[in-house]
C-alpha cells in the first residue's frame, strides 16, 4: 500500500464515466461500489492505484474505475500484476477477475501467485459460471449444473479456491459477499493493507445465468469465529463449513516477495569486465 492522500476523496472519485456492460442486478456493481469505497476509506490517490484484470464480465472492472488500469488477456491478470508490483513497489496493485479467468485458464498463476506472496490484492468475483460467453460451467460450478455445452453438467468436482490459496501460501484469505457493501469494503480495505498476497473471494451473483444465486443474500452470514493465523485451523473451517460464512478467515505473517530494485551497486559498463580477457 502506498502513502495516503493528503485530501480525502470519495468513492465516486474512483469511478470513471464509462457505463458498465453488466446486466441489471449483477453482483459486480456492488463490487465496483465497495472497491471504490475501500480505496477512498484508505485515503489512497487514484494515480497510485493500479487495477489489473483478465477477461470476463468482472474483468471489465478497470474501465469503470478512475485509477490506472490494465485489461489484458484471459487468465493472466496475476502475472501482469506481479510484474507491475515487483517493478513498482510504490504502487497499490489490485488484480480483479472472475472464477473462470482466475481458477481455470489462470489457475496456474493463482497457485504461484499465492506461493510467491507479492504484496498484491486479488479479488475474485465468483458466480460459478462463464457469463460473458453466455452460461457455461466454470471450475466452481456444481457438477450437475445443466448447460448447453455440457448437458447434464460436467460431472467434475468443483475447485476449492480458498483451500488452495491457503495451501499455496496466500498471506491473507477472506470470503465475502457482493451484497454486503459495507462489510466487504472493510474486508477489501484490510486485504489491501495486509502485506503479501491477499486473496478475497467475493460471491457475486450472476442473475442472468444463475438466477438461483439471488438466494445468496439470505444464505450469506458473518462467520461465527474470528480470523486465525493457523493455516490448519483455517483449512479445517473451510472444509467443514457450508460455503456461506463471510469474513476474514486467515491472516499469516510470511514475508512478502519483493526483490530490491533501483539500488545500483556498480555502473552498467563495469559488467563488461566479466568478458575481458
Amino acid at each position: 500500500m502506498n502513502a495516503p492522500s493528503p485530501t480525502l476523496l470519495a468513492a465516486k472519485d474512483f469511478k470513471s464515466d464509462t457505463k458498465p456492460v453488466w446486466c441489471p442486478g449483477c453482483g459486480d456493481y456492488g463490487v465496483l461500489t465497495l472497491l471504490t469505497r475501500a480505496l477512498a476509506d484508505l485515503a489512497l490517490r487514484p494515480e497510485n492505484v493500479a487495477v489489473v484484470s483478465g477477461i470476463g464480465c468482472s474483468s471489465r472492472m478497470p474501465a469503470y474505475m478512475n485509477c490506472y488500469g490494465f485489461h489484458g488477456v484471459h487468465g493472466r491478470a496475476l502475472a501482469v500484476a506481479t510484474g507491475l508490483k515487483v517493478a513498482r513497489p510504490d504502487l497499490t496493485v489490485i488484480a480483479t477477475g472472475g472464477d473462470g479467468d482466475g481458477y481455470s485458464i489462470g489457475g496456474n498463476h493463482f497457485i504461484h501467485a499465492c506461493r510467491r506472496n507479492v504484496d498484491l490484492t486479488y479479488i475474485v468475483m465468483d458466480n460459478h459460471v462463464y457469463g460473458m460467453t453466455k452460461g457455461q460451467s466454470s471450475p466452481t460450478t456444481e457438477p450437475d449444473w445443466d448447460n448447453a455445452l455440457m448437458p447434464g453438467g460436467t460431472g467434475v468436482r468443483p475447485f476449492q479456491p480458498l483451500v488452495i490459496a491457503l495451501a499455496s501460501g496466500a498471506n491473507f484469505v477472506a470470503r465475502a459477499f457482493s451484497g454486503d457493501i459495507t462489510g466487504t469494503a472493510e474486508i477489501v480495505a484490510q486485504a489491501i493493507k495486509a502485506p503479501g498476497f491477499a486473496f478475497v473471494e467475493i460471491m457475486s451473483p450472476c442473475v442472468t445465468f444463475r438466477p438461483e444465486q439471488r438466494e445468496w443474500k439470505e444464505l450469506a452470514r458473518p462467520s461465527p469465529v474470528p480470523p486465525t493465523d493457523d493455516p490448519a485451523r483455517a483449512a479445517r473451517r473451510l472444509m467443514t463449513d457450508d460455503g456461506f460464512n463471510i469474513g476474514v478467515l486467515y491472516t499469516g505473517n510470511r514475508k512478502p516477495y519483493q526483490p530490491a530494485t533501483g539500488q545500483e551497486r556498480k555502473p552498467l559498463n563495469a559488467l563488461a569486465q566479466g568478458f575481458a580477457l
Binding site: 517493478a87 497457485i111 504461484h112
Partner: peptide, 27 residues
Amino acid sequence: TEIGGVLVQAEDELASINMAIGASYGG
C-alpha cells in the same frame, strides 16, 4: 541485481511475458 534491476522466475512462459508487460506498463 548489480545495476538495480530485477529478474523474476515465472511459472510458465504465459506468465513471463505478462510479467514483462506489467513491468513495462509501470514504466
